[in-house]
Simulated assay, not measured.
Amino acid sequence: MKLKTALMLSLFLIPLTTLSLGIINSTGMLFTLYILSGFGMAGIGMGVMHDAIHGSYSKSSKLNKILGYTMNLIGANATVWKLQHNVLHHTYTNIQESDDDINMPFFLRFSPHAKKYKIHKFQFIYVWFFYSISTIAWITMKDFVRLFRYRNMGMIPSKAEFRDSLIKLIFWKILYYTYALILPAVFLPFSFGLVLLAFLSMHIVTGLVISCVFQVAHIMPGIEYPTSNEEGEIENNWLVHQLLTTSNFSPKSKLFSWLIGGLNYQIEHHLFPNICHVHYRHISPIVKDIALQYGIAYNEKSTFVEALGDHLKMLKTLGK
């Protein structure tokens, strides 16, 4: 984890620092450095802040809190993510209107219980564009929209807490845009439009990587989308629910798993979010064996490519 943290932070910060120094005069190098930073941004999101905000990076709560701010460092917000991901997604996985990871704008349908429109027939084609701009939407407006929505839902209990969260959100956004876009635009010998385009290319890389890795864990054929009864209860207990609504992929690829923060073991992550992801590959065979003993589905794809293919099929199915 220490090696990964150093690697991903360096991959994100060194290219941006180089750009801010104004020593680059090649358009190709401009885009190369931003794209490299995009991979670093994705690595921080998947392999550093994810564990830290779950409290599983370290036994030290203080260190987890500090490293959780790497989420803010890459333009998003740790407070909003914790509510969206830790609370809503992990508690209500694949439950329509409760799991914010499948609550999409009207033009995307990620649940068979969501309202269907004619445009959904083509979502398997245009979804990749929205995946590519997902982190741009995230850092510009989504965090603000969700912060206000979570306040209205009562998830932020006091006005003072909401005010402090909003002030910190604005501060971190300004800081991020300063070192990721404004300083390079000021000191580099390129037009602002070209620097902005390179900045967007960074987010296209990050958006595609993160969206594909996260979405193939839940928007898949064979995965269940439970509904609750009038009392808000679902049929299965929480542990079984996680097994039925989650899928693994690429269990034999150690390097790939290391690079994406163990997110190919989503089942184990959902069952044990307080355990660091470096242990998931050792836990996975035990979980699989016990699940099969009790006749509970253990959803798993052998490769990431196979998982992406099945994700595409599911998007088609949801659009029909």
Rank of each mutant, 00 (worst) to 15 (best):
I44E: 01
T70W: 04
M41S: 01
I296W: 10
L183W: 09
Y57F: 15
S253D: 15
K254S: 12
M8H: 10
S211G: 05
G47F: 03
V278R: 09
T206D: 03
F144H: 11
M104G: 07
T135K: 13
I102V: 06
A198F: 07
L166P: 02
L196F: 09
Y265N: 10
T206Y: 09
L13Y: 04
L200I: 14
Y131E: 08
L30V: 01
T245R: 00
R151W: 01
E300R: 11
K320Y: 11
L196R: 02
L315V: 06
I23V: 10
A291R: 12
V48R: 02
L200D: 06
Y150E: 03
I167A: 13
N94T: 07
L169V: 04
K121H: 13
T27E: 14
H50D: 06
L318R: 08
L259G: 02
G261P: 05
I44S: 01
S132L: 01
R109T: 03
V186G: 05
K316I: 15
T5S: 13
T140P: 00
I290M: 14
I170V: 13
D101F: 05
Y69N: 11
G309H: 12
E300D: 11
H113E: 08
E306Y: 07
N299L: 10
Y57G: 05
M141P: 02
N94G: 04
H311C: 12
G40C: 04
S165M: 00
Q123I: 10
L83P: 09
Q84S: 13
Y280H: 05
K159E: 15
F214N: 09
R151S: 04
Y265V: 09
G154D: 12
P15F: 00
G262Y: 06
H54A: 10
L318C: 12
S228Y: 13
Y34W: 09
M220G: 04
F214T: 08
Y225N: 02
W172T: 13
K4F: 00
T27P: 00
H90I: 09
K2I: 15
S111W: 02
N77E: 07
I74P: 00
Y265S: 06
K301H: 14
I296Y: 10
Y294W: 14
D310S: 15
G75N: 05
I119D: 10
H90D: 09
L308V: 14
A78C: 13
F272T: 08
V195G: 03
I23A: 09
M41G: 04
K252D: 14
G40R: 01
Q215I: 11
N152S: 14
L63V: 14
L67C: 05
K59F: 01
G45P: 03
Y265E: 07
H241Y: 07
G45V: 00
F249E: 02
S257G: 10
M71R: 10
G45F: 01
I66H: 05
I267A: 13
W258D: 05
T91G: 02
V209T: 11
F148Q: 09
N248Y: 03
L108P: 10
Y298F: 15
E224V: 08
D164F: 07
F256V: 02
M153S: 11
F110C: 06
I283N: 06
L3S: 14
D164M: 12
Y298D: 02
G222P: 01
F187S: 08
L19M: 02
T227E: 12
L194I: 11
S60K: 07
M314L: 12
I66L: 15
N274A: 10
Q123E: 03
M46Q: 11
L83W: 12
L7E: 12
K320A: 07
A78R: 12
D101A: 11
L63S: 06
I260D: 00
